[in-house]
Simulated scan of single mutants.
Amino acid sequence: MLKKCLRLGACLLPALLVVGCATQQAPYDYTAFKQAKPRSIVVLPPLNNSPDLKATYSMLSQVTHPLAEAGYYVLPVAVVDETFKQNGLTSGADIHAVAPAKIQEIFGADAALYITVSKYGTSYQVIDSVTAVTADARLVDLKTGTVLWTGAASASSNEGGNNGGNLLGALITAAVKQIINTTTDASHPLAGVASARLLSGGLNNGLLYGPRSVNYSKN
């Protein structure tokens, strides 16, 4: 019996090691990022894969602050958006399809930030009403088309967990939250939280600090 247990343990050990390694996030390779040394960023209107039409501009309106705080010059997002509209490009999909070299020619920025919103809005979950925003981003060198960095982040109204209580009270609370959330766009402040988590400088595997940051030498 002991020998059987030892053999079983030997067989399971590699699998356990694989599972354990899978939970650890490997350090991001910043080689291309450090070589490119981008100073200015043009943020393209986000691609919206959520059912809520407000997602694109809710996210777009809140990305400048964390990028500027990270030490980058960010082209005014309203000007960038209007420039695309004047050239007949109104959807995120069409804008994201423009060649990096063309974007560089128009705006003169070093890099472009491509954002995709995959989740934005409130969902009713029997005894709770949860509002969540999830987005991912990639920073692209406009001169070469090289991807310098990719990341993802989320924010949820339910991050504090369920405080308990009776079932009837939970159902009433969920219904009230659903009404409030659908009439006031509760996702908008969460888009700000997700933007900060996604684009703030110096985070683990996040954006490197830009040249305008006092922390630039720490990259």
Score class of each variant (00 low, 15 high):
37 K>C: 04
211 P>A: 07
79 V>N: 04
52 D>Q: 11
90 T>Y: 12
197 R>K: 09
111 A>V: 01
166 N>G: 12
77 V>D: 06
181 N>A: 12
159 E>P: 01
74 V>C: 03
19 V>D: 04
1 M>K: 06
190 L>T: 00
217 S>P: 06
63 V>W: 02
172 I>L: 10
116 T>K: 13
13 L>M: 11
83 T>L: 10
206 G>R: 05
42 V>K: 00
158 N>A: 15
20 G>L: 12
130 V>H: 11
66 P>Q: 04
39 R>W: 04
112 A>R: 11
202 G>P: 05
179 I>S: 05
173 T>V: 03
156 S>Y: 08
134 T>P: 07
188 H>A: 13
109 A>N: 02
167 L>W: 14
48 N>V: 14
62 Q>R: 15
184 T>H: 13
30 Y>R: 05
19 V>Q: 12
125 Q>P: 11
176 V>C: 09
58 S>N: 13
161 G>K: 10
179 I>L: 07
120 Y>I: 11
24 Q>D: 09
83 T>D: 09
42 V>L: 01
171 L>R: 08
35 Q>V: 07
115 I>H: 04
199 L>E: 07
131 T>S: 13
89 L>W: 05
50 S>F: 12
141 D>G: 02
97 A>H: 11
44 L>W: 04
167 L>A: 11
121 G>N: 06
144 T>V: 05
22 A>K: 12
197 R>S: 00
90 T>Q: 02
126 V>Q: 15
184 T>L: 14
47 L>C: 08
135 A>R: 02
116 T>F: 10
14 P>M: 00
159 E>W: 03
80 V>Y: 04
133 V>R: 11
98 V>C: 08
117 V>L: 14
169 G>F: 04
196 A>Y: 15
117 V>D: 13
111 A>W: 00
30 Y>C: 01
45 P>W: 04
182 T>H: 04
68 A>R: 14
114 Y>C: 05
217 S>F: 12
131 T>Y: 11
110 D>A: 08
200 S>M: 01
66 P>W: 08
191 A>G: 15
74 V>W: 13
32 A>G: 11
36 A>W: 01
215 N>Q: 06
202 G>Q: 03
113 L>N: 02
110 D>Y: 01
203 L>Q: 11
88 G>L: 08
214 V>M: 10
218 K>I: 06
88 G>R: 00
113 L>F: 13
49 N>D: 13
74 V>H: 09
99 A>Q: 10
21 C>L: 08
